[in-house]
Design a protein around this nucleic acid. Structure first.
Lengths: 238, 238
DNA sequence: GAGTGGTCTAGACCACGTA
DNA sequence: ACGTGGTCTAGACCACTCA
């Protein structure tokens, strides 16, 4: 039985993703208008429109009536904490960052497997704290393949005012598209307890995140320890 | 400045939701065909189609090519554990249920607030365990407004083979549409520790869920304690 | 074969943002 | 005033399901 080819709007969607991955349009840029894209792909505007709507639903592009269709960017205020689901119980207060360290090391087996690297390939490790109302609530450790983040240092991170993902985008051309998280409750190690100012062994929410760029390529492994005393992780199911 | 009226497809969407809430079509039923609905609402099939597509995206209906559009039901195998995000680290093994109790009581202030009841209105409390590979992994406590679940007893729960939400749907006509969860890491109380067979004070994942039926009416408050030793809570972000 | 949803098109008109 | 995306329509044809 001959397999039905993917519908035209899906093919066009994939072509646009490929163009995004190739950097034809950068985050924040406007895409060509619907008629222009329809011309380029030899389809009707309705079909192109469908492809763009799918991309908008995936948060790869953002549509603005009267203005155009734009490549999503983490630099935008609304996207700032797009992947951070921790909210204060009273919904108030924002985060401040404290960088703990940034160093180069060789991937452990676990990190290599997650990121699709060979063991002992170089990765960059970043550690930091997030505070809310002066109290530490999140201890983040993240690992990045060095080949995509060459030259990342503590100074660069400290010198950037926005979110980490905005920095990655602006400086290394790596845009995070989606992520997968695994949550567990764990007991605070002595080190984590000290940094988060909780008793040793206190329950913490462990959030292991694998983040992907265009084309489902994993480019960041992150492990967060959340102190859920006055904050909680919010999730909407449907 | 005169506010633009909601687009036609959105008005139609809301009319269909109202019909679902009124029970015009029950879970599992087929909706009328697109041309029939277009006739009923005085719109083109394209517009009705858009309304149905939105409802399908919200999981209120399910579309089956060649067959029709059907009201979603938790009785269907794929929907069985639609809201349960706990998966085994090795992705294998399924759950078995053990009912611990079912009793009638008066709503505490917290339960009343969450469910939009007056304090001390009657609610039904259900407690149960979920096991995987013979080990207890989830301790659930849930509270339901009695006025929507009149006559619910342990016998009824034990006599029903499928998921709780399928039972609620079949017996009480209450279909759960979406839910909101708040996650925290907590220390096991003596009782929870005993039931989940972990040491007292061991870290557990607390999952507080508020579930809604058609029209965003909250009809269930649930608190789960998950033992995340060999399982984790999975969440996909985009 | 009849009926359903899925794809694709062409075109009209509207609402919005920008200049 | 112009160009953008948003809504709505009408109709052709395809793919799938089921009797």
């Amino acid at each position: 039985m001959p397999k039905t080819p993917a519908p035209l709007y899906e093919q066009i969607r994939q072509l646009i993703v490929a163009a995004l991955a190739a950097g034809e349009w950068r985050p924040g840029d406007a895409l060509p208008s619907e008629p222009a894209l329809a011309e380029r792909f030899g389809a009707s505007t309705g079909t192109v429109r469908r492809a763009l709507d799918e991309l908008a639903a995936e948060n790869l592009v953002e549509r603005r009536q009267g203005s155009g269709t734009f490549v999503s960017t983490h630099a935008e205020p609304r996207q700032q904490f797009r992947f951070l689901r921790l909210v204060a119980d009273d919904e108030a207060g924002s985060f401040t960052r404290e960088l703990l360290g940034c160093r180069r090391l060789r991937a452990t087996a676990e990190i290599a497997r997650a990121l699709g690297l060979r063991t002992s390939e170089p990765v960059i490790e970043v550690r930091r704290l997030l505070h809310r109302r002066g109290r530490p609530v999140v201890l983040d450790e993240l690992w990045l393949p060095e080949r995509h983040f060459e030259g990342l240092t503590a100074e660069i991170i400290e010198g950037h005012p926005g979110a980490l993902y905005a920095l990655f985008e602006a400086r290394f051309g790596v845009h995070m598209v989606r992520a997968q998280e695994k949550l567990r409750a764990v007991a605070a190690t002595p080190e984590a307890a000290g940094l988060l100012r909780v008793p040793e062994g206190a329950p913490l929410l462990s959030v292991e995140r694998l983040a992907f760029t265009y084309g489902d390529r994993p480019v960041e492994l992150r492990r967060g320890l959340y102190h859920t005393g006055a904050d909680h992780y919010r999730n909407d199911l449907n």
